[in-house]
Simulated assay, not measured.
Amino acid sequence: MSRKGKSITLSVSERDKAELETLALEFGCNWGERPNISKLVESIARRQLIVAPNNDWTNERIKALETARKALVDLGKTDEAKQIAELLKSRSELTLPFREEIETFLNHPLPAWRQQVDNLIHRQQPFRLSYQDAAERVWSYTVLHARIVPIEKRQYLLCRAEESEGNQDVEGLRHNWTLRLDRIQEAAVVSIDKPWENDLERIAVEFHLLSRLAFAYQRKTEDIFVSELEAEPPIKRVVRNISGTFWFFREITRYGKDCEIVSPEAVRSQFKQNLKSLCQAYDLEIKEED
């Protein structure tokens, strides 16, 4: 005779019941083809399945995984990013807005055109794309070199194109463009038969760091020369290859009076013009040079 097991009654909500059935299916606790919660409980009781805390991860661990997920997205490695997103989604520590962000990503990881751009860049294959600027004008670019980078919480396509019309940067950088990914026109990316360039256009800029900044400055990847401390008061000379003045100016503006652009004259003059415009906006009088 078979021995009957003692029955227990679980009082759970419909949502929790559905979650238990999902777990039963995941761990093969079935009755025929249907999930069997009793078998799931039995497996836990027999320690065939281990129940572990799901709320003991530190914020640092979650932030590290989220940083890794975003980095993988930037590299075009969507499948790997989705694996991390699934891991994060399974945790109970997530705030509601963060959980919604993760679920949105899992439902719509990357549009088709973004995957196409990633593939073309990986293959070093030039392409054409359509782009809508902030004034809602549509531009067409023949891209000969590109990379996708995060800048100030947005994703951008930094690219070198055949076209330079409308680019207000200094001579030598007018074929470089910084395009927001969310403004690239969907279904408007086409590969073309042209040679791939090794890099963006670049020019060398020298700037001097003064006062405490001369001591505190940390070398950047694009710096091709950083001097030792010179003169009194101390000065540190830096030469950097830049691909555009906009983001370069954004960086050194934070340094204030402790940073001076020395050369080339075109870059120095453009920065001076920006400063003049700022002073005029605040009704500050500017003494013109003789």
Rank of each mutant, 00 (worst) to 15 (best):
M1S: 06
M1F: 04
R3S: 10
S13A: 04
E14Y: 07
A18E: 04
A18P: 00
E19R: 02
E19A: 09
L20S: 02
E26N: 01
F27R: 01
F27P: 03
C29R: 00
N30F: 05
E33D: 04
P35D: 01
I37L: 02
I37F: 02
S38L: 00
K39E: 06
L40G: 03
L40T: 01
V41Y: 04
I44D: 03
R46N: 03
R47V: 07
V51A: 11
N54V: 09
R69E: 09
L72M: 10
L75N: 11
G76M: 07
G76S: 07
A85W: 05
E86L: 15
K89T: 07
S92A: 14
L94K: 06
P97A: 08
E101C: 10
I102C: 06
F105V: 04
H108Y: 13
H108A: 13
V117G: 08
I121D: 02
F127P: 09
Y131S: 09
D133E: 09
A134T: 15
R137K: 15
V143K: 01
L144D: 03
L144C: 08
A146H: 05
R147I: 12
I148Q: 14
V149C: 04
V149K: 12
Q155T: 14
L157F: 06
C159E: 00
A161Y: 04
A161N: 07
E165A: 15
Q168Y: 13
D169A: 12
V170E: 06
L173K: 06
W177C: 07
T178Y: 12
L179V: 10
Q185H: 11
V189I: 15
V189L: 14
V190F: 15
K194H: 15
P195K: 13
E197K: 14
I203P: 07
F207I: 00
H208T: 06
H208C: 05
L209Q: 04
R212K: 13
A214K: 01
Y217L: 08
Y217H: 05
R219T: 11
K220W: 05
T221L: 10
T221I: 11
E222T: 06
I224L: 03
V226S: 03
E228Y: 09
L229D: 02
L229Y: 07
E230T: 08
A231Y: 08
P234D: 03
I235W: 06
I235Q: 07
K236H: 02
V238C: 02
R240D: 01
N241D: 11
N241P: 01
N241G: 01
S243M: 01
G244I: 01
T245Q: 05
F246T: 00
R250N: 07
G256P: 02
K257I: 11
C259H: 03
E260R: 12
V262N: 06
A266K: 12
V267I: 08
K272R: 14
Q273M: 10
N274H: 09
N274S: 11
L275S: 01
Q280S: 14
A281I: 08
E285N: 10
E289H: 11
